[in-house]
Design a protein around this nucleic acid. Structure first.
Lengths: 349, 349
DNA sequence: AAATGTAACTTGACCGGTTACTATGCAAAA
DNA sequence: TTTTGCATAGTAACCGGTCAAGTTACATTT
């Protein structure tokens, strides 16, 4: 590989018989330089086809104007729309994004964080993997004074901020609605409780049951991952136990889909034999039969808030003040969890 | 913002009383340096928490080890899975990815390409917007000797490569199947013909109809965009014309979904009153009722091939040989386009 | 008329690496 | 013994910007 040399500041400077600093300043609109000169410089830059060298700029200015992002997945509706909103908001604020994907792999996650730090990103937005337990790498980030915002899937690390959705509150709303609709035998196919989204949603389930004075049958709580297969397995476990609940609260949309698949397989009809609600959705949910009712995660807001927060931290001095922002959720009713069949409505809200 | 200074090569050098070149070489495993020294250097680097400065490295080596990617969207199944496979393949080959999203906006696309060139990416992979018509920016890329691979949505620009799916062939297969299943009144809700994917799929439709000796009714060809709304509008146009076809070939999966929505609205049953097949799919297609039969676009292959090709070009000299690689498609049968109701099967293949 | 200010540039150092070339010491070859 | 060669390390320049601290010429103040 042996590329044509790129046009540099010096090339422009030579052409105009000025110093390269003049050119640099002119291009940045620095007030030191006269209107005329600035115009001239810009014209010549255009003619010569100048493009600034970011590596050089980053090196000398020792910042990258870039936000590093680490997510566990892309090809899932939740993350792809989250990422899209992050890109939008960053673009709006003239920041670049360096996106990396851990593929739910802790080692890859660590590597990506190292790489992003080597790129000297100005700040990091991270959504951890299902398996992440070790805080070391995050503490390393903090010790390097690189602002860090955890997003959605978070980890309690001193000196870092968090942006989450109101997982517990959303879960409570969902379960309370189910109970108000007449259900009492309510199961939860949940995620890992080591990670906040799994834990908080579970806590919401527990809390709502308690508030309404319902017992929780330990057999009706299944913990696992957040994918379709986990939902499938979860359902099968409940099914094979011989004691089916009337209602399932699924920790994620894919888990709910897994339940759909499993239920169809064994001939359990949704929502007639088994009703369901879940956390999260996908754009094509409306085409599902029955379309899932769900706790909406406002991905656009989540991404926007995360970017705004990291930019805020980047702007602050060394000692920025970590924050925890919780974005509210909303119940969206579709074809499930509408009303218990044959139920005597006691306390329709 | 006033960060703690990062550990540099010189810091390590000082500590060991060697030159920074020695350290640089040692860390890269250069044979100039003895095994012992190398080990020592690496140990100290580790202790001091050294992370290389990519900006500096890129600047002095004048390459970035980064592939620039421009896509029109993220939050669509096709693109998100494509992007995921690009990341995977790049990671496997030790390349970094600089991803940008044009949001189907030509101006943003141009800006992103400029930015990526300023970053001195080693090569570019681009999927153009629906609206892109001007080649200027791409010619600029070529004139800078930056290898360019168009992916899926391509543009004929001298000196660039293309990776596409076999749009025409896939369309032909789909239409021929429909005809063999007994349909003759076949409509096409297509995309813009200015862009290859719209044009080639349309051409496939025309070709298949011709091969089977069927007339094409101009009213049954609707051109528009690639989104859900375009499918909705397309269906409505056909519907309101009063002369409904028996079968629709939708240019994309979202367009097919739009047809679903519109059909449901006016009470047209799929596949009984109107059968359908489309190009592309989504992971949750299997939960649709009826699940769409479709021409599968192998996103994983597409991404992998694009990355391999750009890396190949990066490795070649200035004058690389542009290629056009076409990835084959496959028909996947689900619940639509199975067989015409009450049809006398004449030529079941 | 001298001091002060200011607009518009220039100088030189530096960011943290890499690269091409040079130097040194010791062992093997002549 | 002298020459040659190789392993190992060092020197200096350079990549393309930015930044802090001058410099110059001219206008303004006192």
């Amino acid at each position: 590989m042996n590329r044509k040399p790129h046009v540099t500041l010096s090339d422009i400077a030579k052409q105009l018989n000025v110093s390269k600093v003049t050119v640099s300043k002119a291009l940045r609109g620095h007030p030191d330089i006269s209107r005329e000169t600035t115009k001239l410089v810009k014209k010549v830059a255009e003619e010569l086809g100048y493009t600034p060298n970011f590596a050089a700029r980053n090196l000398s200015s020792r910042k990258s104007n870039t936000i590093g992002v680490v997510v566990p997945k892309i090809a899932h509706f939740f993350f792809s729309s989250l990422i899209e909103s992050i890109y939008d908001q960053a673009f709006y604020n003239n920041f670049d994004i360096a996106l990396t994907v851990s593929q739910e792999n802790v080692e890859r996650e660590r590597k990506h964080i190292e790489t992003l730090m080597a790129m000297r990103v100005d700040g990091l937005i991270i959504s951890i993997t299902q398996q992440t337990k070790d805080k070391t790498i995050f503490e390393k980030v903090v010790s390097r004074d690189v602002p860090l915002v955890f997003m959605d899937r978070v980890m309690p690390v001193d000196g870092t901020s968090q942006v989450t959705v109101d997982d517990k509150g959303g879960a409570i709303k969902a379960i309370e609605l189910a109970i108000d609709n007449g259900y009492t035998k309510i199961a939860h196919i949940g995620g890992f409780t080591e990670i906040n989204i799994g834990r908080r949603r579970y806590e919401g389930y527990v809390e709502a049951m308690k508030r309404r004075g319902l017992e929780i049958d330990p057999d009706w709580v299944v913990h696992g991952g957040f994918g379709e297969d986990d939902g499938y397995q979860g359902f099968m476990k409940l099914y094979k136990s011989g004691r089916m609940p009337e209602f399932i609260f699924a920790v994620t949309y894919p888990v709910a889909l897994g339940v759909y698949a499993a239920a169809a397989e064994v001939g359990v009809r949704i929502p007639d034999d088994l009703d369901i609600i879940c956390f999260g959705s996908a754009s094509i949910n409306k085409f599902l039969k029955p379309a899932l009712s769900y706790v909406d995660q406002p991905t656009a807001t989540l991404g926007k808030v995360a970017v705004d927060l990291i930019i805020e931290h980047i702007g602050e001095s060394d000692e920025y003040l970590p924050k925890h922002i919780e974005v509210p959720t909303e119940l969206v009713m579709r074809d499930t969890c509408l009303r218990k069949k044959n139920a005597v409505i006691s306390s329709a809200k």
